[in-house]
Write a protein that binds this DNA or RNA. Structure first.
Lengths: 307, 307
DNA sequence: ATCTGTCGATGCGATCCACGCATCAATCGG
DNA sequence: CCGATTGATGCGTGGATCGCATCGACAGAT
């Protein structure tokens, strides 16, 4: 026993109007079509749903129940189609962004805020982790795209430069180097250096910078999180070098920051997408919002510039 | 943008199996049918739902959403059809019975109890009122059938005798007539008579009985409800005559009941149905339960017998 | 009583849709 | 490099669905 949507639509219209002719006019089909559709439905469910004489149409008990049920089914169909439509238009759904903790905490909040004002029905999921994790999440499809640094760009990802994030020296305010306007990497190499963990993209870049000035760069201490580095600097154990974007994660303390020169080092943060894949509309919208922020030259923390 | 149930079924099967061939085998259709159905659906919604190369099928973001929605719609359809089926089989729904208060209170409770044991998903509505109201409720379709007395049987109703309900004298235990085993209507006519209201079917029958013994039968008092008559009798204001079935409605009191003879009078309670109408299955089931009670000769109060 | 307009049902023919069969190109496993 | 298997597609057929025209039944007007 099956009933097509066409039959249910026809029956519901006739039952509501208690008239084949009127319902036919409303639906824009011929009266004979409805007569057949209802007769077919009745034959299929094996019960008379409408009592009709030539003058009146009225519902039987089964017909009343059938109308209620038909409206339920048709409503579910209508609502479902509308829901899918909203999803396809990017008005609902979820955007999953894989990104580094600093980006998640500092750069994205204002973007997300602007995006959700425009599209309140869209949820944004932030998947934060280190560079490797972040890229894997995009490759596996867990995330729609990533904002991250890229060491060895995997071929299956497409990249779009987003911001440049310059390294600065992180000093305690009473440190001798704090008097300078700028600090050189060679200067920094002479101080006890507090590094972040080996997995971090920041670590890769600081190691490379020290290499450029022929410094060996053996860290005095190594910490997993930036906040820990902040604690160490505040305690006077040494100095560090971090991209400007992560400075808010240091926490509060007697810090001063000085631009690092010789060389000027920055990390580029890219939008990374799976290559040759069409993006969900809602993701495109999120990227557009991000692009708008750049086009408008929205304020960024000192040391961070749109790429 | 519309999607047929066939398309949704096809898509859901393919998406769940992530294989056209496997889904085709499950549904018992050819692979080409599914290939076309999914392609049509994608064209209609205007988005790719499945990524397929010759070796693998995987869902896009839109495809995941579409699967969720398709399952919702198909679930609503399946559930609705099943619900209608249950209704048509008489396993769910509502039976509306119009009847006299005495029948509702005394005869029906045990029937309803038995019926609901067999069909727990069926609700029973009791519409109690006086004879005229009861019949109107059946004629208007508010009730599926009635159990009631019938004065002038309307032609549009079909009747099936159900029980006979004998009149008995209602006396206070210290009344002189209480010594007798039986009481004659003529005896009763010599006492102050406490009658029920004019609209009642009981009143019509008591008037007729007094007429048969040439008694004038001017009531000493007249009350709307049987319970009020009970109060009057208990207070010693007079005697009454009531069908055995209504005696439980008198309430408690120092009553004695004596069979009334010369003539023996009973009222017939009929099942009244709208003529030439097919009954909802659930109503038929209720009537079958009632018939079973009669066939089994279930206990009835003294003075009440199956017709 | 008869006529007339309107109702839903139905015969008919045209059209469209959905299906399966057969086959193709692409790809994977051996 | 070859056979097996995948999903896509050309093709022909059968059934479903449609509108048109018409029928019989009935209500209300005359």
């Amino acid at each position: 026993m099956d009933a097509t949507l066409r039959q249910l639509t026809a029956y519901a219209a006739v039952a509501r109007a208690t008239s084949f002719t009127a319902a036919a006019a409303q639906l824009g089909v011929s009266q004979s079509t409805l007569s057949r559709a209802v007769a077919d439905l009745e034959r299929q469910v094996g019960a008379q749903l409408l009592e009709r004489d030539t003058r009146n149409v009225q519902l039987t008990a089964a017909g009343t129940e059938a109308l209620r049920i038909a409206e339920q089914i048709l409503g579910a169909h209508r609502a479902g189609m509308k829901e899918l439509d909203r999803f396809l238009l990017g008005e609902s759904g979820t955007v999953a962004v894989a990104t580094l903790p600093s980006v998640a905490a500092v750069l994205l909040p204002q973007v997300i805020s602007g995006f959700r004002t425009e599209r309140p029905r869209v949820a944004v999921r932030l998947l934060d982790g280190l560079e490797r994790t972040v890229l894997n999440r995009v490759l596996s499809g867990d995330a729609d795209f990533a904002i991250t640094t890229v060491g060895v760009p995997p071929e299956r990802l497409e990249h779009r430069p987003l911001v440049r994030d310059r390294f600065v020296a992180v000093l305690r305010e009473d440190h001798p180097l704090a008097d300078r306007d700028e600090v050189g990497w060679a200067d920094l190499a002479r101080e006890p250096f507090l590094a972040v963990g080996r997995d971090s993209s920041v670590r890769r870049l600081t190691d490379a910078a020290f290499g450029q000035v022929d410094a060996h760069a053996v860290p005095a201490a190594e910490a997993g999180s930036v906040a820990t580095v902040g604690g160490l600097v505040a305690a006077g154990l040494g100095v560090s070098a971090l991209p400007a974007l992560v400075l808010p994660l240091l926490g509060t303390g007697p810090f001063v920051f000085r631009p690092l020169v010789d060389p000027v080092v920055d990390r580029r943060l890219d939008i990374a997408l799976r290559a040759r894949r069409t993006l969900p509309r809602v993701t495109e919208h999120f990227l557009e919002t991000l692009e708008d922020f750049r086009a408008q030259g929205r304020d960024l923390p000192p040391g961070v510039t749109w790429a």
